Computed example of a mutant assay.
Amino acid sequence: MDSRSDGEIAVIGVPVYAGRVPEPAAARLRAGVRGGGRPAILAVVYGNRAFEDALLELRDLALELGFVPVAGAAFIGEHSFSTPQWPVAQGRPDAVDRDKAIAFGRSVRELLEGVSEPADLRPLEVPGNFPYRQGVQPSSICPETDARTCVLCGGCARSCPSGAIALAEGSVLTEPSLCLRCCACTRACPAGSRVMRHEKILEFGRMLSTQYAQRREPEFFL
């Protein structure tokens, strides 16, 4: 996207990792997206704990890329560390979330219909702090593969957003320094062979399940 086309609106959505926009998502946007003055609706999705600086960071990134941010939203999805035993926002987004998203979209449309140009709107203000909080840091912690049940289908590697997983010589190899601990690979594995066993992560998941059990609702900023 290199120049504005009348009537086009960009929707930019990212997950929240440790209160920040994940670095691979920011890098991909910088590498391949240009706003050209288009209005942009920004959305972050977090696991019922907090979205912290992520929406502010996404707004700043959208401005850097040449978009005109006109609205922002923070939605809730099931947390990466959620398990059947220790659920965190299980089943989210749900029907209530979808209804609120539809209402948000209508509000954005009405907002844009009230101005001749997106730049005529007041600058979008969203919560967050700058400098941004520290995001995901490199670690030796990552999901493991149970070689006894792994069928080497490659689903884990295909699902990994950071390219941390590869199949080689009949085994699954993981580069821990690239792992975001998003646990997408554990959910993609059809055999249940990809698992997170590290006690630090399991304990964090138990804490989230008990301390952040109260339902949080989507937040919208216009």
Rank of each mutant, 00 (worst) to 15 (best):
160 C>M: 03
160 C>Q: 06
161 P>A: 06
161 P>C: 06
161 P>T: 02
162 S>R: 00
163 G>H: 05
163 G>Y: 04
163 G>R: 02
163 G>N: 10
163 G>S: 09
163 G>A: 09
164 A>E: 00
165 I>E: 05
166 A>G: 11
166 A>W: 02
166 A>I: 11
167 L>W: 01
167 L>E: 07
167 L>M: 09
168 A>R: 07
168 A>G: 08
169 E>M: 06
170 G>W: 01
172 V>G: 13
172 V>K: 03
172 V>T: 11
172 V>H: 07
173 L>E: 13
174 T>F: 01
174 T>G: 04
174 T>D: 01
175 E>D: 15
175 E>C: 01
175 E>L: 03
176 P>E: 10
177 S>V: 08
177 S>F: 03
177 S>E: 15
178 L>G: 10
178 L>Q: 04
179 C>H: 00
180 L>N: 03
180 L>S: 11
180 L>T: 04
181 R>V: 13
181 R>G: 01
181 R>M: 08
182 C>A: 13
182 C>H: 07
182 C>Y: 01
182 C>P: 01
183 C>N: 14
183 C>H: 08
184 A>Y: 07
184 A>F: 04
185 C>S: 05
186 T>A: 11
187 R>K: 14
187 R>E: 15
188 A>V: 14
188 A>R: 06
189 C>I: 07
189 C>W: 08
190 P>Y: 08
192 G>P: 08
192 G>E: 12
193 S>H: 03
193 S>A: 15
194 R>I: 13
194 R>H: 13
195 V>F: 00
195 V>S: 07
196 M>R: 14
196 M>C: 04
196 M>P: 00
197 R>G: 01
198 H>Q: 11
198 H>P: 00
199 E>V: 07
199 E>C: 00
200 K>C: 12
200 K>L: 15
201 I>P: 00
202 L>P: 03
203 E>K: 12
203 E>L: 15
203 E>C: 04
204 F>R: 13
204 F>Q: 07
205 G>T: 11
205 G>W: 00
205 G>A: 15
205 G>L: 06
205 G>S: 14
206 R>N: 08
206 R>G: 10
206 R>A: 14
207 M>K: 12
207 M>V: 12
